[in-house]
Design a protein around this nucleic acid. Structure first.
Lengths: 157, 157
DNA sequence: CGTTTGAGTTTACATTTAGCTACTCAGCCC
DNA sequence: GGGCTGAGTAGCTAAATGTAAACTCAAACG
């Protein structure tokens, strides 16, 4: 029996990330933040998501430091909160762009993707890829996973 | 009112990818496939996931061409199915490594990550990053999103 | 003072998804 | 043919999510 099957998976970083952004709507909220939305009513309008869930998800993202609340003021209206992305939230972009890229490749409409991402400086398309620290491009099959410092076995019960 | 709030989001590649791998357990099953599991009982043991869900998720992944069924035979037992990853499944690795990397950075145990990914050829750690087609490394803030060929507005009702 | 507006909260109910537990089924072994 | 094993199914309950409507609250406006 492969001993890896008895390892402790409770400290897996993938699972821990999914605990925060794995609920329905959360990633789509982040998508809209990157596309420029910031107000409660913006998210509600573009996502068509229930307000009570939207409220819960936004609160979670703020608690986790992925979004932050600022205020805005329309002339003739009082100040209201808006949601902006933090550096910690920015660091989720590669993961979400990975989802985008896969969907563009395998699930796009015949005419192509709905949205294109490009490098502001040079205008060229951007993509997500895996590199090794020395800068070599890496094929997925050339990656190996090895136990890290927090690796441990499940206690047998 | 920002017109992007009235765009049609039904053909979003992120949402379409999440339709397939956004349910609970699916990404964790893929994680185990990359770590070397292939049998029904492997997944059940290491994930602790209900068998009916495991069965449903595996069937979905096979239908979508992310996993494929092969057979194995232990001596003294009959042939049984096992699940192996396809090239289409391999293409999900950047997205899932993005989740891993974020979790390693923000949610790891004090001693570090449970698993390390490295380049088999040179032994150096690998990471997920965004590059432009011309090979420049790209900061997240230097990415701009523009309407693609399948961009369209929601019909007003 | 009464109304409007954006940003919520609360309540109620339907539907979907997740999580157990028990059962089946096909071959191998004796 | 009776038991064992891996790979499932089936049926039931619990939890999360979806949907809809009513309600709150604070400032601005008339």
């Amino acid at each position: 029996m492969d001993p890896r099957l008895d390892r402790d998976t409770s400290n897996c970083s993938i699972a821990r990330t999914l605990e925060i952004i794995g609920e329905k709507w959360t990633i789509l909220i982040l998508r809209e933040v990157w596309y420029g939305s910031s107000r409660f009513s913006d998210f509600e309008r573009v996502l068509g998501c229930p307000r009570n869930l939207l409220s819960t998800r936004l609160r979670m993202l703020v608690e986790e430091g992925i979004l932050a609340i600022e205020t805005y003021k329309e002339p003739g209206s009082r100040s209201r909160p808006k949601y902006v992305i933090t550096p910690k939230g920015m660091d989720l972009v590669p993961a979400v762009m990975g989802l985008l890229q896969w969907g563009d490749r395998y699930r796009a409409d015949p005419e192509g993707p709905a949205v294109l991402a490009r490098h502001r400086d040079c205008g060229a398309p951007v993509d997500v890829r895996i590199s090794c620290e020395r800068g070599h491009p890496v094929q997925v099959k050339d990656i190996e996973s090895v136990p890290g410092p927090a690796f441990r076995m499940r206690s047998p019960e």
